[in-house]
Write a protein that binds this DNA or RNA. Structure first.
Length: 563
RNA sequence: GCGCCUGUAGCUCAGUUGGAUAGAGCAACUGCCUUCUAAGCAGUAGGCCAGGGGUUCGAAUCCCUUCAGGCGCGCCA
């Protein structure tokens, strides 16, 4: 609906002798203003030096394919308002039902390869609700872009090499000793949650109670055990949350493996002798962005607008956290993606300029890396904020919330917000409202339609009267036509959501669509004695179902057949 | 002190990238189950879009500024 208008308008505007880079088409707030409208004439008033009304008239006159419109109005201020003909709309509805997903989506990705990295929480404790927000967004954005024709890879970066993992190991080690009755010192800045003790006990089961071996090898063993165990739990949590990854990239590999098994021989030239971190720093050095100062090695990120240059190798010779991260992102670049998307918690926003700088230093345009920041989730319990600290062991885990409220509800809740909005969730309220949560409203619409079709089958209506695809659209009343128009708007919503990388637009649309269906359902009966009428109403319901299903699939929320 | 994000109904949040008279869900109040599912429907009420300036045909949206909240400014990760 929007697409055909856009094409017609672009042609008409061009015939006026002007080139425009973008054409705004919007859904008017007032129904009286038609189905779609454009303010394009007002924007052209200056360049054409003619009054908007006159331009609008000229544009309207040069529109070729007028049969699809019932009328085209020019509003006083210069808006051009289009109202589509019933016949055209019903033909389109037929197409929607026939082509389904092909009708709803548009190939804007053209097979472009995009990698999306998200969650990437340290494997030093369970996922908390904040990670859930990143997970929900990453999954939905991936689905959205896949549907839009992009070739997507979802990756989780495992920080299994840094200080935090060591700290986890030491925390569990200390607990282990204490459980054995040793007077072992309490780790001041170590991890403190109950899960530390759980890990220690589990380790004890496997490893036994002896502690004769030397401390270093035991610590190493316990560290390995602990972070792998945590990683398994994280994977399980994500699975139960309904979020899946294509690839899990280990940070350790960047230190140890001279070359990743993912690449073909020869691709990395002479780099085989060194780790990827060394190679990355070498490359930056060759490009002139690495220097030494005060005994440390620096990356010249100020060359690309960062506040200050950043250390990559400390005076003592250790890498900073930044170094493997450079290597990691360089590896992404080597894989040849057309675009790289990172989803980070907003508390890392200060990190964005230096990562962008790396891309530029390596010769890529700034836009090649797109960092989406997900704002923090503030948790309230009985109106009071709950402090979230992984170290102190105080946090609401994703697991708890999945169990208490349900994965679909939480995902939907996250996806009804813009990622950059600060979000407050009161646990008590979320639980209490669970039965009146908007997610059920949308899912219920789907389930209801399903039961209509079951009813039709049950009363052998479908057997007796065959397919409803050749419905008579003339039988649609005004309310039904409003729904038809809403359905035909979905491709536009979808396209804009994909272009803006904003899945929440889908969520809002779905609520609006469900908000049209429920009243309709209440007011009219679909399956009746009137065969022709039943056919057209079944067709409408089928189309609603197709769209609801598609939208929910993008949000990775279930579309239940029964509730 | 500097930088980023946010400020819209009592609460939680949308607002189609600058468009027409400002939107939804909760919460509150009034009604509706013998029918394809009441996780639903019908109705009522709620606003100085934080404040002030500017840009233009037109601003919740863009720029400047003030205020309020959050986050970040390590040779930590």
């Amino acid at each position: 609906m929007e697409k055909i208008l856009r094409e017609a308008l672009l042609k008409a505007v061009k015939s006026q002798g002007v080139e425009i880079s973008s054409l705004e088409i919007e859904v008017p707030k007032e129904e009286g203003f038609g189905d779609l409208s454009t303010p394009v004439a007002m924007g052209l008033a200056k360049t054409l030096k003619k009054p908007p009304r006159k331009i609008a008239e000229d544009i309207v006159n040069s529109i070729e394919n007028k049969v699809i419109f019932e009328k085209i109005d020019i509003a006083g201020s210069g808006f051009i308002n289009f109202t589509f003909s019933k016949k055209y709309l019903c033909d389109e509805l037929k197409e929607l039902i026939k082509k389904q997903d092909d009708f709803l989506t548009e190939d804007i990705g053209k097979g472009k390869r995009v990698q999306i990295e998200f969650v990437s929480a340290n494997p030093t404790g369970p996922l908390h609700l904040g990670h859930g927000r990143g997970a929900a967004l990453g999954a939905a954005l991936s689905n959205l872009l896949i549907e839009a024709g992009y070739d997507i890879e979802k990756e989780y970066y495992i920080n299994d090499a840094g200080r935090q993992v060591k700290l986890l190991g030491m925390s569990v080690f200390a607990k282990y000793k204490q459980l054995l009755g040793k007077d072992y010192p309490f780790l001041e800045d170590g991890y403190k949650g109950d899960y530390i003790e759980d890990l220690a006990r589990e380790f004890m089961k496997i490893r036994g109670y002896g502690d004769a071996e030397n401390k270093d090898s035991l610590l190493e063993e316990i560290t390995d055990f602990a972070y792998k165990k945590m990683l398994d739990e994280i994977k399980k949590d994500l699975e139960d949350f309904g979020v899946f990854f294509d690839s899990w990239q280990s940070e350790r590999e960047l230190y140890t493996l001279p070359i990743s098994p993912h690449y073909k021989e020869g691709e990395w030239g002479g780099e085989i002798q060194k780790s990827e971190i060394e190679n990355s720093i070498d490359e930056l050095k060759n490009r002139g962005y690495i220097y030494e100062k005060d005994g440390a090695v620096w990356f010249k990120s100020t060359a690309f607008g960062d506040d200050k240059d950043r250390v990559v190798i400390k005076k003592e010779g250790d890498y900073t956290y930044f170094a493997p991260d450079i290597a990691y992102h360089r590896r992404k670049l080597k894989k040849g993606y057309d675009e790289i998307i990172d989803i980070w918690g907003a508390d890392h926003h200060g990190y964005v300029p230096r990562m962008q700088s790396v891309f530029q230093a390596l010769g890529y345009p700034r836009g090649h890396l797109r960092v989406l920041l997900v704002q923090m989730v503030t948790l309230l319990r009985e109106g009071k904020p709950v402090q979230m600290s992984k170290r102190a062991g105080e946090f609401i885990t994703l697991r708890e919330v999945i169990d208490e409220i349900g994965a679909d509800t939480i995902k939907f809740l996250f996806l009804t917000r813009r990622p950059d909005s600060h979000l407050e969730i009161d646990i008590e309220v979320a639980k209490a409202q669970s039965s009146e949560n908007p997610v059920y409203y949308v899912q219920y619409a789907h389930a209801r339609i399903n039961s209509i079709f079951e009813k039709a089958k049950e009363s052998s209506w479908l057997m007796a009267h065959g397919s409803w695809i050749d419905f008579n659209g003339e039988l649609f009343n005004d309310e039904e036509m409003r729904i038809v128009k809403k359905l035909l708007l979905y491709p536009m919503i979808f396209k804009n959501a994909a272009l803006a990388h904003e899945p929440h637009r889908i969520t809002f649309y779905l609520q609006e669509l469900a908000g049209m269906f429920h009243p309709y359902y209440h007011k009219y009966r679909v399956v009746s004695e009137d065969i022709e009428l039943t056919k057209s109403r079944l067709a409408l319901c089928a189309a609603i179902m197709i769209v609801l299903k598609h939208g929910l699939k993008i949000l990775s929320v279930k579309a239940p057949e029964r509730m």
